[in-house]
Simulated scan of single mutants.
Amino acid sequence: MKKKAALFFSGLLVFALAACGGDEGASGSGDTITWKLGHLSNEDHQWHKTAEKFAELVNEKTDGQIEIDLYPNEELGSETEVLDSIKAGTADLTISGETMENWAPEAALMATPYAFNNEEHLQKVVEGDIGSEIEESVKEDVGVTPLYYHIRAPRNLTSNEKIETPEDLSGFKMRVPNVPLFMKAWEEAGARPQAMDFSEVFTGLQQGVIDGQENPVDLIQSGGLAEVQDYVNVTEHVYSWIYVVIGNDQFEELDEDLQASVQEAAEEAQEYGMELYETETKEIEEELKEEGMEFVEVDQEAFAEKMQPGVESSFDDVQLDLYERILEAGE
């Protein structure tokens, strides 16, 4: 009887251990892994449409083992808050760019005023050695892994009075994202910048807390800013890109096959996002004009000249080296 009892309890122990082992979803055992992706744009924005495509591709390529829930409109918090949540394990992915400068100084080069001549120059940098160095710094210092990127339309300044030269910025209160480099550059240009979450911009403009803001046309449209701003001043002061990133821990918990599937999905999503960018950007400009916004030509050289001292004085030696290499790549 004692021997039978021992065998019985031994069998129970083996069963229990096997059952516990089945909970390790990230190892690829077959359990569903659910990730949360939070970002600032709305459901009609190309970033969100691309994220939907990415989620669909990931689910398909992992045979349903990974599902991605999307939270647009800063539903999980601001860009900085979601990055913090990823580190804490309460979110998993976000869309982020120069804001990551707060952890990885090299990320400032993703959106440096007047560093890039055009989209071709930008893409050459992103996909070359400089882009790889920035990706590595993001991974090490921010704790997130870039999966794919979006090229962004150039940033322009919106206002209710035309701003054609830096002299027109005197006393101009404007919103900038939480990026120290942007603060310094616009201060040097003569404005009064203040950091503010994008979700607060419309109300800030409506209530006169700020006089203007700067963003690509897609965010000007998705934020409904045509209702509270009359002019898009074509400063084109920043050509930039932005990454879709996942927490290092979340990605490294996957086995190699699942990691490969996610990366494959990311490559296809990037192609899809590029198609949307190319077709939608011009359409958005026309739609903003139809909504009553006037596009104003400005003295871009004057803005570049004013901002450059602020840019260079903001950089440490590593950033300055990257900046100079970016300028050389465009020559």
Rank of each mutant, 00 (worst) to 15 (best):
E101N: 07
G97L: 01
T80S: 15
K87Y: 12
D92G: 08
A108L: 04
A104N: 05
N102R: 15
E106S: 13
A104F: 10
D92A: 06
P105R: 07
I95Q: 03
T112Y: 04
K87I: 11
T99C: 08
L93E: 08
E98T: 14
G97K: 01
T99D: 15
A111K: 03
A108K: 05
T94C: 02
D92I: 07
A88Y: 03
I86N: 03
T94R: 02
A108S: 11
L93N: 07
T112K: 03
M110I: 02
G77E: 02
L76I: 07
T90R: 05
A91H: 03
E81G: 09
A104K: 08
K87T: 13
L83S: 12
T99E: 15
D92R: 08
P105D: 14
A91T: 05
V82D: 04
E79I: 14
T80K: 14
G97W: 00
T90I: 07
N102M: 12
E98G: 15
V82W: 01
E101Y: 09
E81D: 12
I95P: 00
P105F: 08
M110E: 04
I95V: 05
L76H: 05
I86M: 01
E81Q: 15
S78E: 11
D84H: 13
E101I: 03
A111C: 03
E98C: 11
E81F: 08
S85Q: 15
L76N: 07
I95M: 03
G77Q: 06
I86T: 07
L76A: 05
P113V: 06
L93I: 11
L76M: 06
T99K: 09
S96V: 15
N102C: 06
M110P: 04
D84Q: 15
N102I: 11
D92S: 12
E81R: 12
